[in-house]
């Protein structure tokens, strides 16, 4: 089994064989907010590696820095250091249009991620125009079809759509540039349970169809268990554990924090809360 040097240097990256053909690799990522004495380090020395076609989950409680990792990867947060490699090539702090065609992101709140004055048509055709694609009409219709919305929805405004429909539009938008990696920032947490399942199934289908690599942030362990192959658990800006999904299902995590998290996800536990 070939073992790359970079994998050896990174104790927290997955295993040597996955690091070798990693699609997205994050090494020693630190993200800071604020300046001077108010400087706050939101992400500390995070290293993960996502393999081609994989689906990687990042879980943790609110404020653990998991969304910030995604925002640094896609370039929305610029105050980071460390290394982010895509297909082995490090990305710079300023991103270009070619980068946009590699990575796209689906946001948490479908009520906030669509421009209130733009029709679905404009939302979907804009990235195509920006990148000079041709056959825009056909692509827009196909994208709507891909995410299970009909052509009827094309000229609607976001306020004329339900939460699930909005999230489908947001997914379609992320796919317009035919990216290889999709960053999902709690894509179902703002939706009700039945719609959550629909959207998760949609993600699963699209992954197969378009050969996508997912990095998904969530605090919902059930979603992770359903969607992901590998999971990183974050706490206070650090990755405390990386495990595969079977380890999580079998509740055999190594660290105490992960065990707590798993226990908490099973619902209210009188013993855990120490009713005394």
């Amino acid at each position: 089994m070939p073992v790359s040097d970079s994998a050896l240097m990174e104790p927290k990256s997955l295993s040597a064989e996955t690091a070798a053909d990693a699609r997205l690799e994050i090494k020693n990522l630190n993200v800071y907010f604020g300046e001077g004495s108010e400087r706050f380090q939101a992400v500390k020395n995070v290293s993960v590696s996502v393999q081609q076609g994989g689906s990687f989950g990042i879980v943790g409680e609110s404020g653990s820095g998991k969304s910030t990792v995604l925002r640094a990867v896609c370039g929305l947060v610029e105050s980071w250091d460390g290394e982010i490699d895509i297909d082995g090539a490090p990305v710079s702090h300023k991103r270009n249009k070619a980068f946009a065609r590699k990575i796209q992101m689906v946001f948490q709140d479908p009520y906030a991620s669509l421009h209130p004055r733009h029709t679905v048509d404009r939302v979907l055709s804009e990235p195509l125009k920006l990148h000079g694609f041709d056959g825009i009409d056909g692509r827009v219709l196909r994208a709507l079809d891909d995410v299970g919305l009909g052509a009827d929805f094309r000229f609607r405004y976001p306020h004329q759509l339900s939460g699930g429909q909005r999230q489908r539009v947001a997914v379609a938008r992320a796919l317009m540039l035919e990216p290889e990696i999709l960053l999902l920032d709690e894509p179902t947490s703002a939706l009700d349970v039945s719609v959550q399942a629909e959207i998760l199934n949609l993600f699963a289908e699209l992954r197969k169809e378009h050969n996508l690599t997912y990095v998904m942030v969530t605090h919902d362990l059930a979603v992770v268990a359903h969607m992901c192959d590998e999971i990183a658990v974050m706490q206070f800006g650090e990755v405390v554990e990386v495990m595969d999904v079977d380890a999580m299902r079998n509740s055999t995590p190594k660290t105490a924090y992960t065990q707590e998290l798993l226990k908490a996800s099973m619902g209210y536990d009188a013993e855990f809360f120490g009713d005394s």
């Binding site: 991103r95 946009a100 991620s113 421009h115 990235p127 920006l130 938008r173």
Partner: peptide, 21 residues
């Protein structure tokens, strides 16, 4: 707002975002 982040991720320039969004 997330919709501004989304169009930034698409590689839009500053003036495009200001005028169009």
């Amino acid at each position: 707002a997330d919709y501004i982040s989304a169009v930034r991720l698409q590689g839009a320039g500053i003036m495009h975002i200001i005028v169009g969004h």
